[in-house]
């Protein structure tokens, strides 16, 4: 797209974009570190994730302020308006992603006593890989604004949901096998849920990008395969 007559406006938009990319990079790193800390019982790394969250929170606040000033100053229209509103929404999603990563990091200490069973650790790692791939790709799409790719990412959230459901089932089994697993498994259940929600936020971002690019909301229901809410209804 051609540039604005007021070049300072272009600079402001570029700045917002850059800050979103930075937030995205940090949020991604925090989530990866949190899972790493969890499966390895690395409390120092967990501490780092917790303190990084402050940076992310500040970044979101700064983006908000800058976006509001830009709206007030430039009265953006059409694609510009959608872009700035989209930026606000994405910043909020990324801030939540950071919170979820931080929440996982906080649970590292709680599960340290027992450690995380190998099999469950692998499941969590896999789930987190899926979610982080979603997040990473959606941030790439944010950079190139492809509505088509945004739509493709939105379709993939299903995979994470399915993986989460199977992990949920596995954790239940562990708890039933030995009540001493309950503390650790309950924490891991929250961790799994957090990771699944990171995937949801990535999907939100994909939808926002689709809106920025096209001015329309993506059509149809979001594909879902999270059946954990009915799991264990009848225990045989």
């Amino acid at each position: 797209m051609s540039s604005h007559i007021m070049s300072a406006f272009d600079e402001e938009l570029k700045y917002l974009n850059r800050r979103i990319s930075e937030m995205g990079g940090l949020a991604e790193q925090m989530c990866a570190d949190a899972v790493h800390a969890l499966v390895n019982g690395d409390s120092a790394l967990a501490q780092k994730v917790i303190s990084d969250d402050v940076i992310l929170d500040n970044a979101e606040r700064e983006i908000q302020e800058k976006a509001i000033v830009t709206i007030a100053k430039r009265q953006p229209m059409a694609a510009d308006l959608r872009e700035i509103i989209g930026t606000l929404r994405i910043a909020a999603d990324l801030e939540r992603v950071g919170d979820l990563g931080k929440n996982n990091a906080k649970r590292v200490i709680a599960v340290q006593g027992t450690g995380v069973p190998r099999k469950l650790a692998r499941g969590l790692e896999h789930l987190s890989e899926l979610a982080l791939v979603q997040l990473k790709e959606v941030l790439d799409v944010f950079a190139n604004r492809s509505a088509q790719k945004a739509e493709a990412i939105r379709q993939r959230d299903e995979e994470i949901d399915a993986m989460y459901t199977s992990l949920f089932r596995e954790l239940l089994t562990y708890m039933m096998e030995d009540p001493r697993n309950i503390t650790t498994c309950t924490h891991l259940l929250f961790c799994a849920k957090n990771i699944e929600r990171i995937g949801d936020h990535a999907t939100n971002i994909a939808e926002t990008i689709y809106y920025i690019a096209t001015g329309a909301q993506p059509q149809g229901e979001r594909p879902k395969d999270d059946s954990s809410n009915t799991l264990g209804a009848v225990v045989e």
Binding site: M1, S2, I5
Partner: peptide, 11 residues
């Protein structure tokens, strides 16, 4: 052209 005009961009 509408897009460019209302957003203050070069046409």
């Amino acid at each position: 052209r509408t897009q460019d005009y209302i957003m203050g961009r070069f046409g």
